[in-house]
Design a protein around this nucleic acid. Sequence first.
RNA 1: GGACUAUUAGCUCAGUUGGUUAGAGCGUUCGAUUCACAUUCGAAAGGUCACUGGUUCGAGUCCAGUAUAGUCCACCA
Length: 891
Amino acid sequence: MAKIELEKAYEASKSEDKIYQKWEESGLFNPDNLPGDRQEYFSIAMPPPNVTGILHLGHALENSLLDTQIRYQRMLGKRALLVPGTDHAAVATQARVEGDLKKQGMANPRQELGREGLLAKIREYAENSKSTILNQIRKMGTSCDWSRLAYTFDEPRSEAVNEIFRLMYEDGLIYRGYRVINWSVKGQSTCSDDELEYVDQKTKVYTFKYSADFPISIATTRPETKLGDTAVAINPNDERYQKYIGQKFTVDVGAKNPLTITIIGDENVDINYGTGAVGVTPAHSQIDFEMYQKNKEIGLIQVIGRDGKMTEEAGKEYVGLGINEAREKFVAYLQANNLLEKEEEITNSVGTSDRFGDIVEALPMEQWFIDVNKQIASRGRSLKELMREAVTVGHNGDNKKIVKIEPDRFQNVYLKWIDNLRDWNISRQIWWGHQIPIWYCDCGHYFYSSNTPDSCPKCNGKNLKQDEDTLDTWFSSGTWTFSTLGWPSESNDLLKFHPTSWMQMGYEILFFWMARMILMSTYALDDIPFKEAYIHGILRDKNGKKFSKSLGNGLDPIEMINKYGTDALRLSLLKGTAPGNDARFYEEKIEGTRNFVNKLWNISRYILQSVESAEIIKSEPESKTLSDQWILSQLNKTIDQATKYLNESQFSLAIEVLTDFTWNDFADWYLEIAKIEGDKNQILLYILQNLMKVWHPFCPFITEEIWSNFNAGMLMIENWPTSKEVDDKLVQSDFSLIKNIVSAIRNLRSENKIEPAKRISAIFLANNEENKVIIESQREIIEHLARLNELTIDQQNPETPKKIENAAANVIDGIEIYLPLEGLVDLKAEAKRLTKEIEEIEKYCKGIEAKLSNQEFVANAPAAVVNKEKQKLAEGQEKLEKLRNQLATFN
RNA sequence: GGACUAUUAGCUCAGUUGGUUAGAGCGUUCGAUUCACAUUCGAAAGGUCACUGGUUCGAGUCCAGUAUAGUCCACCA
């Protein structure tokens, strides 16, 4: 049979697309098609990338995590499902398209194109972008089930959104309310508290009085809003001002009407901060609005409009002015009238819209909200409580229905956020999104309907109009884990795959997304959305800066794939990062992993070219030499560790142990021995095949490519190797003496001083045959060498290492060689260390003995404490004995 | 103001119930290399694990505090 020849170096670009196609055509990404009796289900909902652009490194990281996990689970024999999808990303997408249109010279796309026209443009953009990003996900090798492809804005998902809206509406959780909300003038839409990005700015704080005879001074950073003040709040315990509570003052500051300022008491006002009094502007501050709700009689005056300009209420002199102009004018007025007492520069932070970038205005408006505190009749508690419960005691108190957050510190972050959570504003004034399924009739009645209703259920009127607003994009994303599985119908998928098994996301969307998924799922399905949430950090560039378009420091994953291959990219993203921590990422990292991928290729190339046929080796071949025994035990140990790490989602550590074995133990060490000892094809093939399996989740392409040389099916659906019991007697450190001898010999060989083949074998065979035991420790090797040479080992004699060197040299035919034994036989130091440790533990044991012989202690201390002391003593003595025995072998 | 994270080799980072001599990759230096692989191999140098205390027989690891950097939240009258 012809030997198998591989190309000299692995060329990813030649294989990858072909292999992905093979996988996709096999239909095996779909768990329904997986062969074998797979009882256990494993599912992941892919965090849907926004249809706003192309794949970036963050996506690449997520795909690497997701696919590694799902491939591993599939190989474990589970019905593994990874549902792919995309997110319509309401605001983000519309902002993007509007921005593009403006760049092309359209001044106001909404006006010029109208709702339908603009939506068509956005749809076109989204579809394009969607197909780009889905193809890029294929490039990443992601083994998701394309037959279940979902989109947050497609029919089934819209149905889910409408249905959950109905449920919440009927439960009274969704309500329409007049509130102060965050308004982006640029985007002409509201945004939720979480969508704000706070930036520091330098600004002035002005201390002033409304009029010369007004008794209390107040301070503000927003003078222009003071035209809408209706009250001054002071602490009711403030002796300076409490006498004014309830009094009304009329002041004329130039607004349309003179202001009536009521003095109200409020516990939250800090007596010692500033002037100890707060000017209350109910229309333009959330906190002031809350005060207004408690004291409705003070009234509310809106002086800033949706266009970001002063309203008529602000007065003739101000109407139509921008914020800054109005501010200057008002400050000038204060100065002119001698009302301004102080002007200081401070740094404060202002909320900006994360999508449109402008500073948001607080405006009062009629909007849709989700009430997070209301008791839900069917659940007996509030959404807040549901959200809290799912990560603490478990949903419904069932500790099996618990969302485990990894790393767990994010649990606190999440819980803290819930504590501060206010009602969630879900309506947006943009057009790209799920339109709110509420219809208004001329008669004033409004009602829910999932489709266009015929008539008003109250008055039978036919003139109906749907609410023009759309839903916050996170409203639909929140349903993702179950809307992708067929909810609201009781589909088979839903029964089998929900709750999903695993979820991963960056910490920056913890609140946006994880919280909303938990909310939606616990509410609508009475279950958690996923069992485990793995939180990863964000990738930064070499200098620790975030990757961003504006900085131009982005690395294009597709470019990296073309240059280094997908496997290398995937490995480099997962390597050397700990869960939840940010990681720096740069091209040299990929170079390193590319080298490793190539190593994998060359190992295979070497083995395959030397074997006659590449059958699958089903069971562990018999070992003939010590080196065989060692490498196989190393393999088993490595599989064990990698499995453990993968079960804990410790991808980086799994890669580390696998790399160490593959490169150091197998390629650099065992393959070299194999060249000398010969006749190892079975073992080589066996190890190679196992390597392909364990590397497959990380490097799916190259492993599948190599696997195709065996007479077998697809690697993707092979079973994960189970390790045979590891022989603890042969651990790596015990082998290092032999390793060192061999490397010394290899050096000699390279200097052409010896022809080593027979001699290395001699060491191994001698160890095995003459003793008929496996070497247990360095010491044993030394002793063994000593016996062969009839040497007496004198641990105390400084000459000993030298003698051992000579002995080893004799074993291999009396050739004089240098053996690097330092670090291995520093027995004196070892003995000294042991003696010291024994002394310490003796002292420790004596201490406990003394305590135990103290009658008072034994009589008075609780039994548990006494027992614990006894146990400690027993442990100490046990250890002492072990150490003494160890020391004895030295003498 | 409240938290969280990080601080380990020149650089980037691992180090998960406390346990022998703290690791990796890159970089540096020296050497090797027709025989799977220069996308290679061997070796070396390089560490007061930020600092100060504490707990422990034993601390990079646990506790308290300090410093520096970063992130989040709240407040911003």
